[in-house]
């Protein structure tokens, strides 16, 4: 998985406040965004989600992870943002080993990762604008900076006219686009999308993938899990598949 890209990892929104010190000195020509080495994850109930998985994603890459439901796709992403710890093996994100990170260190690392969920995880009693701004407040941005970032981000996902709507007033596709806006408003270097099209019709799915591709074009490393083979076939991005805990290379 060493697709070389000439895209720089900067984004159009400017640098996030905590990104300066996180870039490790790279020994390779292409910088590694994500590195999994012999990662095994066995849940407490005995379910073997991942078995000896190796995966390297370079910066600026767009990667599809496919596989049937329950095959371990979500587990893979959870390992990347520290929601789950591997039973064995190393998980390295932007040069930081995830496993030993605790508390605030993990929080700081998560600011470099944007996450899009299948169920959107929007806050019901807050408007679109507040839902997106919420991330920035949570990360401690100043009011001025938050105002500077909000509208460009909403425009990017095409929701500038829905800023004051509540989540329940939006369609599924619109809600998912809010969730993408929320994931990227903090200008993360890595975007993880867990089944972002799982609840959407083909048109909305296409739209979501297009937005993710646009983000990738400005340098964001994107990892998308999906079980929608059709969606994967329409694109030319690298694809890996997880089956029974093992990772297989399909394309790229």
């Amino acid at each position: 998985m060493s697709v070389t890209t000439d895209r720089s990892p900067t984004s159009s929104f400017g640098q996030p406040p905590s990104s300066g010190s996180s870039l490790p000195p790279s020994t390779q020509a292409t910088e590694v965004a994500i590195d999994l080495e012999q990662v095994t994850k066995v849940y407490a109930n005995g379910h073997q989600a991942l078995l000896g998985v190796n995966l390297r994603v370079t910066k600026g890459e767009f990667l599809f992870v496919t596989g049937p439901s329950g095959s371990g796709k979500s587990t893979l992403l959870k390992l990347l943002y520290g929601e789950e710890k591997p039973t064995q093996g190393q998980v390295i994100v932007n040069g930081n080993a995830i496993v030993p990170l605790k508390g605030n260190q993990l929080s700081k690392l998560r600011r470099q990762i944007g996450i899009v969920f299948q169920d959107y995880k929007l806050i019901p009693r807050r408007t679109v604008l507040e839902n997106v701004a919420f991330v920035l407040w949570a990360q401690g941005f100043t009011r001025k900076e938050i105002h500077r970032r909000l509208m460009p981000t909403l425009k990017m996902v095409g929701l500038q006219d829905k800023a004051d709507c509540f989540p329940h007033e939006l369609s599924g596709g619109e809600q998912q686009r809010v969730s993408i806006a929320r994931a990227v408003v903090g200008t993360p270097q890595i975007l993880l999308a867990d089944e972002p099209t799982g609840n959407l019709d083909p048109d909305n799915s296409q739209q979501v993938i297009k937005i993710l591709q646009r983000l990738n074009a400005i340098g964001v490393t994107v990892i998308v899990t999906t079980h929608d083979e059709h969606l994967v076939r329409q694109s030319h991005h690298p694809v890996v598949q997880i089956r029974e805990g093992h990772l297989f290379r399909v394309r790229g």
């Binding site: 943002y81 929601e83 508390g103 605030n104 929080s107 700081k108 690392l109 998560r110 600011r111 990762i113 996450i115 995880k121 806050i123 019901p124 919420f134 991330v135 949570a138 990360q139 401690g140 929320r182 903090g186």
Partner: peptide, 15 residues
């Protein structure tokens, strides 16, 4: 729900 989202987007525990 809000706290969960905050944790996922990297808000510190104190915050």
């Amino acid at each position: 729900r809000e706290i969960e989202v905050m944790q996922l987007v990297g808000a510190t525990t104190t915050w």
